[in-house]
């Protein structure tokens, strides 16, 4: 149905999203506030979901979508946890 070169395009897109993850690591290290780091990691997590979905098409293994689904469901848990933690130092939870 789709041409064979399409999977190359999707693989290249996955490479681009991984490149974004690399440059976002600068924000994880540099901060300056904790929330900046959390935002950067949250975007890396979203990119991970996209990369996993792209790889599952490019490598023709649809079972990889399961892993992407787990990240889509659980990634924001970390953001909520850390953001609540930074406000009340663990008193909230």
């Amino acid at each position: 149905m789709t041409s064979p070169w399409v999977s190359d395009v999707l693989l290249a897109a996955a490479g681009a999203f991984i490149l974004y993850a690399v440059v976002l690591l600068y924000r994880v290290v540099a901060g300056p506030t904790m929330q900046d780091r959390v935002i950067a990691v949250n975007v890396v997590g979203t990119n991970t979901v996209v990369v996993l979905a792209l790889l599952s098409v490019a490598l023709e293994e649809t079972s990889f979508l399961d892993i992407a689904l787990v990240y889509a469901l659980l990634n924001f848990l970390m953001s909520i946890a850390i953001s609540k933690f930074t406000v009340e130092r663990g008193g909230v939870i």
């Binding site: 935002i39 909520i80 850390i82």
Partner: peptide, 29 residues
């Protein structure tokens, strides 16, 4: 599965941003 992924990202991503920003606001940044 892909459509579910899409929906979940659409719901959870802005929620995470909200949580982070609200925490920063509460912290007085």
């Amino acid at each position: 599965k892909t459509v579910l992924l899409l929906l979940f990202l659409f719901v959870t991503n802005p929620t995470a941003a909200h949580a982070i920003t609200r925490a920063a606001h509460e912290q007085g940044i």
